[in-house]
C-alpha cells in the first residue's frame, strides 16, 4: 500500500474542500472497496478523507420519499422497518449483496460508488482503460465471462457490480449530492454512466462532490417484488446477472405498473423501461413475462465467454417476474 494522509473532518464542507482541492484525495466510508483497491495498487490516493463523522446516517420519510443517509450501513438499511415496509425491493437487493460482515461496514454512498470487479482492472500489470486510460481493454478479447451485454464500448466492457443500485434505479431514486458548487440532485438513472471513450469515469459526480443521501419515492410496489440474483454459489458471490422486478397487480390479475432493471449486464444498473411498458395492462402470466423478457433483451450482444447471458437474461427476468407476482 502507498503512504497516505488521513483526515477525519466533522463538517461536510471541510470534507468537500479537502477532496475538491486535491486531485489525489478520496473520501472513505466503510472502506470495504477502497482499501482493497489500495492494497492492490489499483487506487493510490495520497489523502483519505474519512467521512464517518458526518451526520448522514439517518433514514427518514420526507416529501413522500424515504431519505436514506449516505452513511447508513447496508445492513441497517436492509433491516429498517420503513424500508422493509415501503421499499421491500431495496431490502431484498441489499441482502443479496456481499456477506453480513461486509454489509455491516458498507455504506449506501460507498455501495453505489464501488468499482467494477473486472479482473483486468484489479491487476495492475494488465491492460485496462478504466484503470489506466489508453492501455487497452484487457477483457475485450480476454476472459469476459462476467462482462457486459448492453451499453459497452470498445474501450470498456465492464459491468457495475452493485446489487443495491439495481433496485434503486428500478425505484426511480434520486441521489443528493453536495459539492464545491453547492447542492444538487441526480436522478439515479443518470448517476452512473456508460463507458464510451472515458471508461475511467464511472459516474457523473464532479470532483469533490459528496453524496449526502438517496431519496426513494413512495410507490405502490410494496408486495409484488423480487430480486433475482443468479450466482455461482448460494451466497457471497457477485451476480452473473441479476433482475429487480416490481409489479402492481389489480384484483383481476392485470398489471397496473411495473419496474424492471438488470444488474451485471452493463456499465451501469440497467433499467428496462421498454419491457416495463410491455407489461402494463397485461395479465400477470408467464406469457406476458416472456414477452417483456424478449423486449428487454433487444440489442444485447455477447462476447466470447459471456454468450450464456443472452439465454440466462430472459430466463432470469421471467423468474423474477413470476416470483414477484406470486409474492
Amino acid at each position: 500500500m502507498n503512504q497516505f494522509q488521513y483526515v477525519r473532518p466533522t463538517k461536510p464542507q471541510a470534507a468537500i474542500d479537502a477532496v475538491a482541492k486535491d486531485a489525489n484525495a478520496r473520501f472513505i466510508a466503510g472502506g470495504t472497496n477502497l482499501v482493497d483497491l489500495m492494497k492492490r495498487g489499483v487506487m493510490t490516493p495520497q489523502k483519505l478523507v474519512d467521512i464517518n463523522r458526518l451526520d448522514f446516517r439517518k433514514i427518514e420519510r420526507q416529501n413522500n420519499a424515504l431519505r436514506i443517509g449516505a452513511l447508513a450501513l447496508n445492513s441497517t438499511v436492509a433491516d429498517d422497518k420503513q424500508v422493509r415496509e415501503r421499499q421491500p425491493l431495496l431490502a431484498l437487493a441489499l441482502n443479496a449483496g456481499a456477506s453480513p460482515q461486509l454489509r455491516n461496514m458498507a455504506t449506501v454512498g460507498g455501495n453505489m460508488l464501488q468499482r467494477t470487479r473486472c479482473a483486468y482492472f484489479y491487476d495492475v500489470t494488465m491492460p485496462c482503460n478504466k484503470r489506466q486510460p489508453g492501455t487497452g481493454c484487457g477483457a475485450l478479447e480476454g476472459v469476459n465471462r462476467m462482462h457486459a451485454i448492453f451499453g459497452f464500448s470498445d474501450k470498456c466492457i465492464a459491468v457495475h457490480p452493485s446489487d443495491m443500485s439495481v433496485a434503486l434505479v428500478a425505484l426511480d431514486a434520486t441521489v443528493q449530492v453536495s459539492g464545491p458548487k453547492g447542492n444538487r440532485s441526480i436522478p439515479f438513472a443518470d448517476f452512473h454512466r456508460l463507458p464510451g471513450d472515458t471508461p475511467e469515469k464511472d459516474t457523473n459526480l464532479e470532483p469533490g462532490e459528496l453524496i449526502t443521501a438517496v431519496d426513494v419515492p413512495d410507490n405502490p410496489f410494496t408486495k409484488h417484488v423480487h430480486y433475482q440474483k443468479v450466482r455461482e454459489r448460494a451466497s457471497y458471490a457477485f451476480a452473473l446477472l441479476s433482475v429487480a422486478a416490481a409489479l402492481d397487480i389489480d384484483n383481476g390479475g392485470t398489471i397496473k405498473a411495473a419496474r424492471l432493471a438488470m444488474g451485471g449486464v452493463a456499465h451501469k444498473p440497467w433499467r428496462l423501461t421498454a419491457a416495463e411498458q410491455v407489461l402494463v395492462g397485461k395479465p400477470a402470466t408467464e406469457e406476458s413475462f416472456r414477452q417483456a423478457a424478449t423486449v428487454a433483451m433487444q440489442g444485447a450482444k455477447a462476447f466470447k465467454y459471456n454468450e450464456y447471458k443472452l439465454r440466462l437474461g430472459p430466463n432470469a427476468i421471467v423468474q423474477a417476474l413470476k416470483t414477484a407476482a406470486a409474492a
Partner: peptide, 17 residues
Amino acid sequence: RYVTKDLADYHVPVHAD
C-alpha cells in the same frame, strides 16, 4: 496470468452450498 486471483473470483463452497 491468473484472472482468478482471490476468493471473490475463485469460489469455494459457503455454508449455504
